[in-house]
């Protein structure tokens, strides 16, 4: 298959130890041309993962640290009057980058959050009546602190829906953590400067296009719709899945199949990405993740991938 792709994943696995599944999901998200939300406690390697992703795929990277006083202009950029040329000049903000890490996204005020989410949806920003296109590919990795932490504005459901996936890294197991400590102690971890990109942006664009070509047969679409329908018909699920969610599911499954070197989608692909794609949409903004069982798992359990 794409040797380069597996090589990239290997590199990422060396950088973030013991999280192969999450890394695969993150790459899937990138291939599916969607945005990624990482929800975790501080210090779990959210930032490291996004750094590494940008760098391995050879993409330009910028980071916006969200705070409660961050304004949209700080992120998008401003028009500044150039006295010599006697006109306004646009100074692009940090969002004009291929990979944007929106760190601690839920610490910013809703106004700033919306500005980011608008940019994510439209792939362009408008400032003072001028539209500026964002780079392609444009990949936002937002991190979010759990909602119960102090000083957070929970993302509303409508905005959660725009993230293709939400993943959570979680604590590494002891062996991986030990390896990490060993790696750090003698010499500093490779930084963005010294690591070599494995993949060129052009290749990434090709792959993103190939993902859309992965075949999803009639039975696969039926299965996907049964899953979505289950969330709508069953009173157990307070927030049913939207059509955007089903679109995301299909794209995610296609990317997962592509990652596994297949040109058609299997039910297993949908199942693999289902929790990452559906859970945050099923749950709404306020509730915590791991309280009791996953809603998405419940839907999977209730639905037979073969015929109804």
């Amino acid at each position: 298959m794409h040797t380069a792709l597996s090589e990239a994943i290997d590199t990422l696995n060396q950088r973030i130890l013991g999280k192969p599944h999450q890394i695969k999901l993150a790459v899937t998200c990138l291939l599916a041309n969607g945005h990624l939300l990482i929800e975790d406690l501080p210090g779990m390697g959210k930032t490291t993962l996004s750094h590494a992703l940008a760098q391995v795929f050879g993409l330009g990277f910028s980071r916006i640290q969200f705070t409660s006083d961050l304004l949209p202009a700080d992120m998008l950029g401003v028009n500044i009057y150039n006295a010599q040329q006697q006109r306004f000049e646009f100074h692009a903000g940090p969002i004009f980058s291929e990979v944007v890490l929106a760190d601690e996204n839920n610490r910013a005020s809703p106004k700033t959050q919306s500005a980011l989410l608008e940019a994510m949806e439209e792939n362009q920003v408008s400032i003072d009546g001028t539209t500026h296109a964002l780079p392609v590919p444009f990949f936002v990795i937002a991190t979010q602190n759990p909602a119960y932490q102090a000083g957070t504005y929970p993302l509303p459901e409508s905005q959660l829906d725009r993230f293709l996936m939400r993943i959570s890294l979680g604590y590494p197991d002891t062996a991986a953590e030990k390896a990490m400590l060993r790696q750090t102690t003698p010499s500093p971890a490779p930084t963005a400067e010294n690591a070599q990109p494995v993949i060129t942006p052009a290749q990434l664009k090709d792959w993103q296009h190939s993902v859309t070509q992965v075949h999803a047969s009639e039975p696969i679409l039926d299965y996907l719709l049964r899953l979505v329908q289950q969330s709508r018909d069953n009173a157990e699920f307070p927030y049913p899945l939207s059509p955007r969610a089903s679109k995301s599911l299909l794209r995610g499954a296609q990317a997962w199949a592509f990652l596994h070197n297949r040109d058609f989608v299997l039910p297993e692909d949908i199942q693999a990405v289902f929790t990452a794609i559906a859970e945050h949409r099923l749950r709404g903004s306020q509730t915590d993740y791991r309280e009791d069982g996953l809603l998405s798992q419940r839907i999977l359990d209730l639905t037979d991938p073969l015929a109804a």
């Binding site: 039975p219 299997l266 039910p267 297993e268 199942q271 999977l300 359990d301 209730l302 639905t303 037979d304 991938p305 073969l306 015929a307």
Partner: peptide, 30 residues
Amino acid sequence: MEPVVLWYQKAVTAVAGYTGIQRKNLGPQA
């Protein structure tokens, strides 16, 4: 059901009867 699905299901039932492992919501590959 299409005959393909129907007969695959029957084969799966036979396998489950023999091995005691139910398919539940697993896909064919898994």
